[in-house]
Structure formats: C-alpha cells, structure tokens
Design a protein around this nucleic acid. Structure first.
Length: 453
RNA sequence: GUGGUAGUAGCUCAGUAGGUUAGAGCACUGGAUUGUGGUUCCAGGGGUCGCCGGUUCAAAUCCGGUCUACCACCCCA
C-alpha cells in the first residue's frame, strides 16, 4: 500500500519485493531455467553487481549513462550497477581466453539494473538469464543458444502456439545497405528507423529518412520495406542478387547465404523449425552484434519480446584485447513471470515441511525438542509449536505449514513411548515406537536419511 | 524526460445531489472443538479514505499541488 509521501517506508520505484508466497514461485521458475541450462551443458558463472562506469560507456557511448544507476564512490571512482552481463562476461572471458578450453558454454542468472521508468514488462531491477557460447564461430552455436532459451520457456508448458523466434542478421542488413550505397555512418540511424517501422507513422518515417539519406531515401526505404517482408532463404537470395549484377558481389552474397542456411539447418535438425521464422524486422538495438540476431516473442496475444540475443564476435576483443567469437542470449524474469501468470503456467510451489510435532502437553516439550533435533540431523524439515495447544489447533497449524506427517506428542505418548504418526495426505495413522520414529518419518517423507548433525 | 488514467482494511473492491460511528468478500485472530487437519457456523481485531493545502457549517466525495502505481511515448543492452 502506498503510504504517505514516497519516503523510506515505500521502497524505490521499479524495485520489486517478494513475500515468501511469491518468492517460492520465483524460485521454482528459476529452478527450471537452471535445469534447462544444465541439460545443454552450460556452466554457471557470476560477476560483480558494481562495475566501473567506463565498462559500459566505452562500449555504447556516453548517452548510456542516462539509463544506468551510476555514482561516484568514496574514492572518486565512477561506478555503475550492471545493466547487463555481457560486458562483464567479455572481461572475464577475455582475461582467461588463452587458457579456456573452447568452446565455452557459460550462463548466469542474476539481478541487473537500469534507470528507466518502470512500465509493463520492465522494472528497474530485474533478474536475467544469460547464455553464451564463446570461442565458436559456426552457426551451430547460435542454434544451441536459441534452443536452450526455448527449452527454458518450454519447460513451463509453452509450445509452438505460444512462442515464435524471429531471426534476422546484422550482416544481411550491412550488406544490403552497402549495396544500396548507404554510407556506413548512416547505418545505425537507418536501422533505428527499421526498428520503429511498426510504431512510427509513415510520414514521420519518410521525413526522418530524407534527413538521413537525402534524395536516395525513397529508393532505400522501398528496398528496406521489401527486406522486412522476406520469410525464406530463396527469397533472400533473389533479393540480394537483385541489388547487384557484379559477379564478385554475388559470390559474397552466396557465402553469406550459406552461413545463414547453416543456422537454419541446425535449428531444423534440433527439431525447432516450427518455432523459428525469418524476420528482418528484428534489428536488436545497435550495439555490438555482428551476425545473426534473434528475439523470442509471445506468439499469440501481445507479441512482446521475452528474450533476445545474437552473435557479437568483436566485443570480447574490444573489451579485453583478446579476440574471441561469441554468441549469446538473455531472458528477463519480468515478462516471463507476467506471461506465465497470464497463462496459468506458473509452477506450483506450496509451502511444505516434512514433519510437524503436535505438542499437546508441556510435559512432552523436552521429548519434542530432542526428537526435532534428531529428525533435523537426519535431513528432514521439522516444525513444532512454541506454546502447547489442543490437537485440533495443532493439526490445523500442521496443515497450514504443508506438513506431510504429524507426530502426536501428548501425556500418553510420553508415558507409553509410542507415538501416533499421521500421514497427512492419506489420513492414515500408525503407532511408532520412539526408537523407530526418525527412520519412519524419513520413509514417509520420501527422503533418505542424511548423515551428520 | 513527455502524456493519459488511477489511489478507500494485508488483498480484490463497493461507497457522489458533500451530511451521525466508512462497508463486503478473501486473509488474519478467537470460539463451536480439553486427543486429531482441509469443510462449515459464530464472534473479533484491523482504516488519518496516499499525503499536503484550499472551498464549505460539514469533504472518502469538490478544487489545487505532491507522491506512488498502471498504461503509452522516448529508450530498450
């Protein structure tokens, strides 16, 4: 609830809080992402939350600082909360590039920060799942990254009807713009227009294009619009060749297409063709991509991006001085959780405890605590009440805690040394002697007794 | 940074010709239930109606500001 005036009682905008009920679900979601990474042989790494500001400004220019959480530390050094993992990864990988056995598959799942206005699907602090394959230039690596991201999403029950991977390629764009004689320094501006093509009014776009390209704007815009409609390799081939009659240029086109086809082939062989479509409307920002780029969208409904990535073969060399090919992708938890909730695909995550000790007589407290110690030492989770209560209330409490088993501990049990243990799922109750209790509870919980205190 | 909409109990929300003591469901606590859970029934606690100011005999209600949230733009690594 918002209280008074945006003070310290409120928390910062864009920073979420998770009560246990919600956090359980988040943990369950993250567990599936970890699991997908494991199936694809990715190893987890992590890095600092705080980095030198230059790590980000050098790569993307000074303007980026406006979208970072950054400040001067007490030693006068400009630092920033990480807005993404890739620069950190580039440094880590670059530093050990010569001693790494390539290819490397690394992933991370951690929180990142951007100083932007929060809105649908975007917070200032968010958890992102990052996957990267380093030291491998062939398109099979790109396919693996896409496949693993899809595997993560599919593990929640999302399928072909829900997800679409739209694959583009920065080299194709660069090639087309070259053949259209667009000066290299204008590429970024034009790609920005492409990125906005669905949102920006046509006359506005024409105006911007004219400002950027002068007289050639209509011709270039027409060709660009054509490229955006291409959905297959054959169409792409004839489109590229329609831009030039030069023999050498056409050979270069063919080489590009061969690489592109190899990616499509790998995706097909991995059984993912139904998810993937060619779509040169995808440009992926303007930063450091050098090859195929992709975004994964929610196929039905709002069509917002859930994940994205691409190849960035130059970045590690630029950051670290040790060139290393790289392809990666990332998936954020904000859009993912929204989508899973909308679809009813959130993993079930009920509170649970292996065993509840129903302490109905103060005289049994000593026995209960001793038992709790033994059961916990055996690796089971145990709860018991701090104050004695009637069995009715204790069973209610046990139920609320998600107890799988309840041990009745009253006057009678302490005297007799025999304890009724109730299986809360079936309602069945069995009398168990004190000596057998720990083993019995272990069997009931489905956990093998662990060693150690 | 720009624009639109909204803010009433922990949650979802009722509540305007301005008029005693601001309501419901869910959740929470207690009881029915002094040896056995989920259901049911009864009772209870919980509110400066986001905040500050203004208009008025009187403001949850009207006006201004402010904070926050949501939505869109910018941006999207």
């Amino acid at each position: 609830m918002s209280s008074s005036n945006g003070g310290a009682d409120q928390g910062l905008p864009g920073f979420r809080e998770f009560l246990p009920e919600r956090q359980r679900v988040r943990r369950a979601v993250f567990a599936r992402l970890h699991e997908a990474a494991r199936r694809f042989g990715f190893e987890e790494y992590d890095g600092p939350v705080l980095e030198p500001l230059e790590l980000y400004t050098e790569k993307s220019g000074e303007e980026i600082a406006g979208q970072l959480f950054w400040f001067e530390d007490r030693g006068g050094r400009a630092v920033a909360l990480r807005p993404e993992m890739t620069p950190t990864l580039a440094r880590l990988a670059g530093a050990s590039a010569s001693s790494l056995a390539k290819p490397v598959r690394w992933y991370s799942l951690n929180e990142q920060y951007r100083f932007e206005r929060p809105q649908k699907g975007r917070q200032r602090a968010f958890t992102q799942w990052n996957l990267d394959i380093l030291g491998e230039a062939s398109p099979g690596a790109d396919a693996e990254v896409i496949a693993c991201l899809l595997a993560g999403l599919r593990s929640f029950g999302l399928g072909e009807a829900d997800l679409a991977v739209r694959v583009s390629d920065r080299r194709v764009w660069t090639r087309v713009l070259e053949l259209l004689a667009v000066p290299p320094e204008r590429h970024a501006g034009l790609l920005g227009l492409v990125d906005r093509m669905d949102r920006q009014p046509e006359d506005e776009r024409k105006e911007a294009a004219a400002a950027l390209l002068g007289a050639s704007a209509p011709e270039v815009l027409g060709r660009v619009a054509e490229l955006r409609t291409i959905r297959g390799e054959e169409d792409l081939a004839s489109f590229l060749d329609s831009l030039t009659a030069d023999g050498e240029a056409r050979e270069a086109n063919a080489a590009l297409l061969a690489d592109w086809s190899a990616l499509r082939g790998a995706v097909r062989a991995l059984g993912l063709d139904a998810f993937v479509r060619v779509d040169f409307g995808i440009v992926r920002g303007l930063a450091y991509y050098t090859g195929p780029v992709f975004e994964i969208f929610e196929a039905s409904g709002t069509g917002r991006a859930l994940a994205g990535g691409g190849r960035y073969d130059d970045l590690i060399g630029r950051v670290s001085g040790h060139p290393l090919e790289a392809v990666g992708g990332a998936l954020g938890d904000v859009t993912l959780l929204d989508l899973l909730e909308e679809r009813g695909c959130l993993p079930a995550a009920a509170r649970s405890v292996d065993c509840y000790l129903a302490l109905a007589a103060e005289g049994a407290r000593g026995e209960a605590l001793a038992l709790a110690g033994e059961v916990r030492a055996a690796g089971l989770s145990v709860l018991y009440p701090f104050r004695r209560a009637n069995f009715g209330k204790l069973f209610k409490e046990a139920n609320r805690c998600g107890a799988r088993a309840v041990v009745a501990l009253g006057e009678r049990e302490v005297e007799s040394g025999v304890f009724p243990v109730r299986d809360m799922a079936t309602g069945r109750e069995e009398a168990v002697s004190r000596a057998d209790l720990v083993t019995y509870l272990g069997q009931l919980s489905g956990r093998s007794p662990a060693a150690g205190p």
